[in-house]
Structure formats: structure tokens, C-alpha cells
Design a protein around this nucleic acid. Structure first.
Lengths: 102, 102
DNA sequence: TTGACATGTGACCAAATGGTCACGTATAGT
DNA sequence: ACTATACGTGACCATTTGGTCACATGTCAA
């Protein structure tokens, strides 16, 4: 799961996920065209995403298609984010406390 | 929000959030005692967490107390994670599709 | 089979990151 | 006042990271 957090840390990689969200199954050169970066940069980022399981690929002829895989994000949500995002009321209490502190 | 993602990318920092989750309002030296790292390392990580808004601090005498702030995590959940975690059925469809592809 | 296209590899470099330390400042307790 | 405690700062270093490029491989299409 560490790999997922690390993968999501970079804005370019989140942007790539975003592009795949808009249109799934894009090739490398298609994605390259949408980002202000060379093909090699995009390739490296896609590799990180793929190793984190956030992107699944399939080859069609000479091109490699990239598919978004939301499963790891879901896992991060279930096993980590929900733990902290749940105590919403507690956060409001904390805010109230902070305001009183001033 | 980029700062939040970056802050969460490091396992030590997630560990710190975890320790604050177990017991909120710990001082720097208290946290240092729970991690296999020097005081300075912990300090740097706490600073990153604080700048991302994930940790709020207050000084009590000569010690600085650290409080977990779940708000940014909640925002990441609402404005980012939910977008990808939601299409759960779609992911299952994709899995089915992958299996058929073999 | 030749040429254009899509992707892969390894080297390479600048910058950011994670970590330690020597030293300095502020506060508590006696 | 003195001393131990808690925290802060800046320098410093090794490693990782983000990015580019030259070059190589594989694949379509005429």
C-alpha cells in the first residue's frame, strides 16, 4: 500500500489517472500528447502507477493501452482514509476548541 | 492539496499520524520515543505534516503538543478519492473483462 | 522489404528528500 | 542563579526522484 501512496504523491501521476478517468485505455503517445512532458517522462510515471496497481495495461499491436484500476484507491479508502475521515464531529469539536484558545 | 498527498507519501509520517490517532496531543519527545529515529528526523516529518495542515500544534510551557487534524484527509476523500473509489461495479466489470481476455 | 510509427532500455543530470549532527534558545524546577 | 529539559536552526551528506536523451526493438502497411 506504500507504493500506492507514493504513486499518488506526484501531481503528474494524479493527472495521468485523471486523463484515464476521462477516457480509459489510452496509449502512451496519446497520453504524451495531453501532458507537457516528453514521452520518457510519461513512461516513467506510468510505470510507477502500474507497479502500484493503479493502472493495468494490455498490448494491442504495437501500442500499449493503459486502463485505470480503482481497486487500490478503494483499498486505501477502506483501510486508511475512512479511519481518519470518519471522526468528523471530533474535528469540529477541535475547531471549536481552537477558536476558544485564541 | 498536493501538500497533503506528498505528506502522506512517507510511511514514517503515516506512522506519526497513527500515533497521534492512538493518543492525541503528544509532544515531540514523546513521539520521538515511539519511533526508531532521532528527534531531528521526527521534527522534520512533523513540520511537513503541519504545513499540510494534517497536524495542529499548541505550545504548553516548554513542550509543543501535536494534534491530529483530519480535515485535509476528509477533503482528499471528498474531492478525490470518492471519485475513483465510487465506480466499484465498473472495476468488477473490468476484472471480468480481464479474465475473459486471457 | 522498406520505412514509418509505437514502445522499451540504459545512461545521465539536477533537484528534492530523508536523515544526522553541532550548536543555540527557551522554560521548569530546585 | 544553575542545571537539566524540550525544542529550534542551519549545515551537511547519501539516496531517491523527475526529467531528458541516444539508441534499440518490435510492428503495421505499402
Amino acid at each position: 500500500m506504500d507504493a500506492v501512496f507514493k504513486a499518488l504523491a506526484d501531481p503528474t501521476r494524479r493527472r495521468l489517472l485523471d486523463e484515464l478517468y476521462k477516457q480509459d485505455g489510452q496509449s502512451l503517445s496519446a497520453l504524451e500528447g495531453r501532458l507537457p512532458m516528453s514521452r520518457f517522462g510519461v513512461m516513467k510515471h506510468l510505470r510507477v502507477l502500474e507497479e502500484a496497481g493503479l493502472v493495468k495495461t494490455r498490448k494491442r499491436g504495437r501500442e500499449k493501452l493503459h486502463f485505470l484500476n480503482p481497486v487500490p484507491i478503494r483499498l486505501v479508502h477502506d483501510r486508511w482514509v475512512s479511519k481518519y475521515a470518519e471522526p468528523w464531529a471530533a474535528a469540529l469539536t477541535g475547531l471549536k476548541h481552537d477558536l476558544e484558545e485564541d
